[in-house]
Computed example of a mutant assay.
Amino acid sequence: VYQNHRQHCGRKSDFLKKHKFIDYVQRHFFEDGWSLDVCSNRCTAVGEFASSDIVCTRTLYNYVDQGLLDIHNYDLPEKLKRNTKLHRIRRNKKKLGRSIEERPKEINKRNEFGHWECDLVLGHKSKDDEVLLTLSERMSREFLILRIPDKTSVSVMQAFKELQRQYSEHWNDIFKTITTDNGSEFADLSSLEDVSNTLVYYAHPYTSCDKGTVERHNGLIRRFIPKGEAIDNYSLQDIIDIETWCNSLPRKILAYHTPDEIFE
């Protein structure tokens, strides 16, 4: 009797029992680029699986470590990252406009729509290569990628003028504030305040965490365009596809909704 009871004690693995969910995870991981956490929670958020038919995020990572899935640790884009940057303190700060210290504290709570962060993504870093101007909305995580010919302030402002024409009368409602860094390419960005109600704030030097949302999204771009690879090698449709993928990716911070759903 004791031996029989021992065979039935302890928690048993759900791996074989929940093979439909495992197939769902592997399909979306490889075809749609979803993380294991998104795979585990998006299906319950939209009612595709009952909670009793899935396994949690931690268990999925355990399955990867145990070699039970076709997914390996080197397939996980964030797991093998290492921080190799040195912290630098800049003594002489250049002042291009309104400091981020003047930005209302309510913006940090991400409860109000219309507050954006802005940055540039470089490719080959040569003078003849194009550049990506990126903007991310803090509440919805909506992500915009604009292709510009170079990283001069003239090209950046031309892109913003085109963006203003695109959103026309809705501009002041959508772009209430923009936070960016102190790069020379954004030196003229504060001139937006003269032609609209948009307020522009500049982050502290060498403090990328002041605009962590857009930095995080730039990291998503690097899954498709590695550092050092020329932007010219990618078509406009490739850039549009990357933007579409980012905005249709379910996020844990959005209760597993997509940025497009929240933005609309």
Rank of each mutant, 00 (worst) to 15 (best):
A50V: 08
S52A: 08
D53E: 11
I54A: 02
I54M: 00
I54H: 01
C56Q: 00
C56Y: 03
R58A: 10
T59R: 05
T59Q: 07
T59Y: 02
Y61G: 02
Y61V: 01
Y63R: 14
V64R: 00
D65C: 04
D65Q: 15
G67I: 05
G67C: 15
L68G: 15
D70S: 15
L76Q: 06
L76D: 01
P77A: 05
E78T: 11
E78C: 02
K79T: 13
R82Y: 06
R82K: 10
T84S: 13
K85C: 12
L86E: 11
H87D: 10
H87K: 15
I89S: 14
R91D: 07
K93A: 11
K93T: 09
K93L: 04
K94V: 14
K94T: 15
K94Q: 12
K95Q: 11
K95H: 15
G97V: 15
R98T: 07
S99I: 14
E102A: 12
R103I: 12
P104Q: 00
P104W: 06
P104V: 08
K105A: 07
K105D: 03
K105N: 05
E106L: 14
I107S: 10
N108A: 13
N108R: 09
N108F: 10
K109V: 10
K109A: 09
R110T: 08
E112S: 12
E112R: 11
F113H: 05
G114Q: 11
G114S: 04
H115F: 02
H115I: 06
L120I: 02
